[in-house]
């Protein structure tokens, strides 16, 4: 039954006006990471964008937990995106950035903030809630971004080169953290990278991990 609760992609055709790639079929179980690797410009980000809803699919279907999300708008898919840049909302402090998703789901301000503090602890940023985002380092910002994505309680997580703006030691530490967090959250994750080593680390650091080369 694991299949039905995870992410299932069947004959998915991606591209803008014409297909960019032959159709994809794969599935990712909850708590597992699929590492997508390939040179830039081959459509990795488009694949991720199609799953998250940034780009409409040209064909095929996307299911999460048995729910067909192929035609749903971004905000109804419950697929959280994390980009290369943290893209934190500049007018909110760290806590309110993380609380953004819960607030949208109708959670009260107090509860959303409490949830945010809990997730900040997950990403090792306990006590950072009141800081302005300008006071964060690059690695910290990316962790906040991850916490923000998870706080929305998504059914799947899409990570688009999330570490490429960081330096090497930080990158590998963060990779470990992401694996642990994904496993703990129990949701399927897709991790796009142009770096084969990073892809390998992500895929093999996790029992159900796999690599999709493009």
């Amino acid at each position: 039954m694991k299949e039905s609760t995870g992410l299932r992609v069947v004959d998915l055709v991606i591209g803008y006006d014409s297909p960019l790639h032959e159709p994809f079929t794969f599935s990712v179980a909850p708590g597992d990471v699929l590492a997508v690797v390939g040179p830039s410009g081959c459509g990795k980000s488009t694949l991720l964008g199609t799953i998250a809803g940034l780009t409409p699919a040209l064909g095929g279907s996307i299911e999460i937990g048995g729910r067909d999300i192929t035609a749903l708008p971004i905000n109804e898919r419950r697929v959280a995106m994390v980009f290369q840049e943290a893209l934190l909302f500049p007018h909110l402090n760290v806590r309110d950035n993380v609380a953004y998703g819960p607030r949208r789901a109708g959670v009260s301000r107090e509860e959303a903030r409490a949830e945010a503090d809990r997730l900040l602890t997950w990403v090792d940023l306990e006590g950072y809630g009141d800081r302005s985002i300008e006071q964060l380092s690059g690695g910290q910002a990316q962790r906040v971004s991850l916490a923000r994505a998870l706080a929305a309680k998504p059914d799947a997580l899409c990570l688009d080169e999330p570490f490429s703006a960081l330096d090497a030691p930080l990158r590998s530490r963060l990779a470990q953290d992401v694996l642990a967090i994904v496993a703990r959250a129990g949701i399927p994750a897709i991790h796009v990278t142009h770096d084969p080593d990073e892809a390998a680390a992500m895929a093999h650091g996790n029992p159900g991990g796999s690599i999709l080369s493009m």
Binding site: G53, M81, L87
Partner: peptide, 15 residues
């Protein structure tokens, strides 16, 4: 960055 708004939407915000 247009992705700022996309991020918000992927967190459950309508357009």
């Amino acid at each position: 960055d247009p992705r700022m708004e996309l991020t918000a939407r992927s967190l459950g915000a309508g357009p």
